[in-house]
Design a protein around this nucleic acid. Structure first.
Length: 421
RNA sequence: GGUGAGGUGGCCGAGUGGCUUAAGGCGCACGCUUGGAAAGCGUGUAAACGGGAAACUGUUUCGGGGGUUCGAAUCCCUUCCUCACCGCCA
């Protein structure tokens, strides 16, 4: 959610920049500002009335104490009248505040100056490509076939006990999953992130704080009996640690492994084959809270960090800067990481590293004290480091040969084996 | 699930309708003191939204929401959460 003061200050610029997201904000921004003008007028009047009532109430107290009952009763009447008036004002104040809020939540975050124009993922800018695509034998298998051949993942068993999109990892397959989680966490800890293991279920305040509510209600699993939500990413619990706080020392660097739950309503077709798109998957997330002056510098560092992990895994990957049309509602600038999955001959998104600037902080009331003594909004950033399923798929596909699957060297000490045969 | 006790500032904690401008303490900041430090003493110490060039100032906030009253941290309703004991249980 954008901050009204920013909207007032940079109205034209913001409207202009949002066009890159193919969003015409003109009408919304104008009406938010004019409603805010109205709000100020009402607040001024209502503050005056309340102030008057407070004075009268004190006066009445004095009169009662000194036994001047008649004078007190007179004042009571006038205060009653004032109260009726101020109650009307207060209810219109609340109404207009709701209106403004409902407008603000419809306006997406302002894209960074460097975001390229474009309508879809076709227009994203490929910044860098690392590694070389492996040349596979003609009889090379896709990861779901490999998983079945070597008994690493049992999709049918998942269907039986839960449904599609909920795979069961078995034997060395389960061990590999656990190895990847540990490896990612250790890489993040070595880069200065503090590890957390949060709940996988959060309340609606938390979902609202990071923007999943009200925008994505239908995409989440909701436990109605307790009004709790299964988290779609660790970003939600971890960023909400800092809801309603004033930060003293920057940066704050957190990492967390969690399962992630997504309903993926509306997804279908070959994209959902195997591990490509799941309802439950594992992910290790990194989250940073930064001073606004440093946040883009920090975003670059996060990009370098994620790159370094992918290099260690010996996977070919590319870094993509999202164009305006593909950028999420809440993000100012996002870099996607895609690994090459050889048997599918596809680039698969495995990480998305974003700077949200103060868009989340505004909802979260996440602030710091600036040198002028005033509260300012922090910047929040996060990224996957990394999402497991597609990494898993790429490792299986890219490293297959007649003699089995060779695991990248960095995983050996975690998995306890070098080959899957 | 049952019963009971609670939710007050950064933290602890007092506060049963006007004397609260939320006592007192801790912490923190600044100053005095000192050769330097500690101790001691003094001063200050929340957020949001307004008005004002500024000094300053108005309103709101004692878990959330609603109500009673001229006036609510305090009374009533409702809801959420925490703790303790019991029951069940990995």
């Amino acid at each position: 959610m954008l901050h009204l003061l920013d909207l007032r200050k940079n109205k034209d610029q913001i409207v202009q920049k949002l066009k890159i997201k193919n969003f015409d904000a003109h009408a919304l921004v104008s009406s938010a500002i004019s409603k805010d003008d109205e709000r100020k007028t009402i607040q001024q009047k209502s503050d005056e009335l309340l102030s008057e009532q407070n004075k009268i109430a004190k006066q009445i107290g004095q009169f009662f104490k000194s036994g001047k009952i008649d004078q007190a009763n007179e004042l009571k009447q006038s205060s009653s009248n004032l109260k009726k008036e101020s109650q009307k004002l207060l209810s219109s104040l609340h109404k207009i505040e709701d209106d403004i809020f409902n407008i603000l939540v419809q306006i997406p975050n302002v894209p960074h100056d460097s975001v390229p124009n474009g309508n879809s993922e076709m227009d994203n800018e490929i910044l860098d490509e690392y590694g070389t695509k492996p040349i596979l034998e003609k009889n090379a298998l896709c990861h779901w076939e490999i998983a079945e051949k070597y008994k690493l993942i049992d999709f049918k068993l998942g269907n039986k006990i839960t449904g599609s999109g909920f795979p069961v990892f078995t034997g060395k397959g389960a061990k590999l999953q656990r190895a990847l989680i540990s490896f990612f966490l250790d890489e993040n800890i070595n880069a200065g992130y503090e590890e957390f293991l949060p709940p996988s279920v959060v309340n609606s305040d938390s979902m609202f704080g990071t923007g999943a509510l009200p925008d994505k209600e239908g995409q989440m699993y909701h436990i109605q009996s307790d009004n709790l939500y299964l988290i779609p990413t660790a970003e939600v619990p971890v960023t909400n640690f800092f809801r309603n706080t004033i930060i003293k020392d920057f940066p704050i660097k957190c990492t967390a492994y969690t399962p992630c739950f997504r309903r993926e309503a509306g997804s279908y077709g070959k994209d959902v084959r195997g591990l490509n798109r799941l309802h439950q998957f594992d992910k290790v997330e990194i989250v940073q809270i930064e001073h606004p002056e440093n946040s883009y510098n920090t975003l670059d560092k996060m990009v370098k960090h994620v790159s370094s992990i992918l290099k260690k895994l010996e996977l070919p990957f590319r870094i993509v800067k999202l164009c305006g049309g593909d950028l999420s509602f809440t993000s100012s600038l996002t870099y996607d990481f895609e690994v090459y999955s050889a048997a599918q001959d596809r680039w698969l998104e495995v990480s998305s590293v974003s700077n949200f600037e103060s868009f989340q902080s505004n909802r979260l009331k996440l602030r710091f004290k600036d040198t002028d003594g005033k509260s300012k909004l922090c910047h929040t950033l996060n990224g996957s480091a990394l999402a497991l399923p597609r990494i898993y798929a790429a490792i299986l596909e890219n490293n297959q040969s007649d003699s089995g699957i060779r695991l990248p060297d960095v995983l050996h000490s975690y998995s306890g084996f070098e080959y899957i045969k």
